[in-house]
């Protein structure tokens, strides 16, 4: 059981960190760049993508024995498109305001290659539980990047945070908006598409810097240990 747990934790960490679909795989750039203008759009589309990834993975993994190798890709695309359509119906019925604001990008989730990649490489080959854990990790990793990027661009471009939260969380969230500075002096480039590329590039750079300094730290520690043992031996 503990072995399973550590396996799960490893898969989750891979999705959020070392194998992050957005920062390492650079997958699903279309929604990432188009929708990450505000943190609320980021949260909304991040959760939507996560749910679609979980559902698609679970279904494919359950029926993986029935789907022949030759026709797996058409079946995947068919299934993902259907799941996205179902979610779109749900959003139109119960989150109409949010649907109005990002509805344009919901059908585009079908073409998000993160989903197709996880379904093809994991869900089609692994049991349901493993597929679900992987989907959750990857979806969460993607959503986090979407949220951080949305937050950064919203702060820089509009000087606000959480504007439009009531569209997603209902009327309780109507006062969640934080005005950090006057939006008139916002950095326009941040909200425009190039700003998304710059923002993502900075996040990738930050992640690489953290990874590298961690490796450096480890090797220094190792050298210290070796040096220490030499001293003892001599």
């Amino acid at each position: 059981m503990t072995k399973q747990c550590s396996e799960c934790r490893k898969t989750l960490a891979q999705g959020i960190g070392s194998q992050n679909p957005a920062l390492v795989g650079l997958l699903g750039l279309c929604p990432l760049l188009a929708v990450s203008t505000t943190i609320v759009n980021g949260i909304g589309l991040g959760i939507t993508t996560l749910v679609i990834l979980l559902l698609s993975s679970a279904i494919i993994s359950t029926f993986r024995g029935l789907i022949a190798d030759e026709i797996r890709l058409p079946v995947f695309v068919l299934l993902i498109a259907s799941v996205v359509t179902l979610i779109e119906f749900y959003l139109r019925a119960y989150r109409y305001e949010f649907y109005l604001s990002v509805g344009l990008f919901i059908p585009l989730i079908v073409t998000n290659c993160v989903i197709l990649a996880r379904v093809e490489s994991v869900a089609y080959r692994k049991p349901v539980l493993t597929a679900l854990v992987d989907a959750f990790g990857m979806g969460l990793g993607f959503a986090l990047v979407l949220i951080v990027l949305g937050g950064l661009r919203e702060i820089m471009g509009f000087g606000t945070l959480l504007s439009g939260a009531e569209q997603l969380f209902g009327n309780t969230a109507i006062n969640w908006k934080i005005q950090l500075f006057d939006g008139e002096h916002g950095f326009l480039l941040a909200i425009l598409p190039p700003g998304a590329f710059f923002g993502l590039a900075m996040l990738v750079a930050l992640k690489n810097w953290i990874d590298q300094s961690r490796i450096k730290m480890q090797s220094v520690n190792k050298m210290d240990l070796q040096a220490g043992s030499h001293i003892i031996h001599s």
Binding site: V35, T37, T38, N41, V102, G103, L104, G157, I191, L192
Partner: peptide
């Protein structure tokens, strides 16, 4: 009452 303009812009 209805539009499809870019979110955020």
């Amino acid at each position: 009452i209805e539009h499809h303009e870019t979110p955020g812009l």
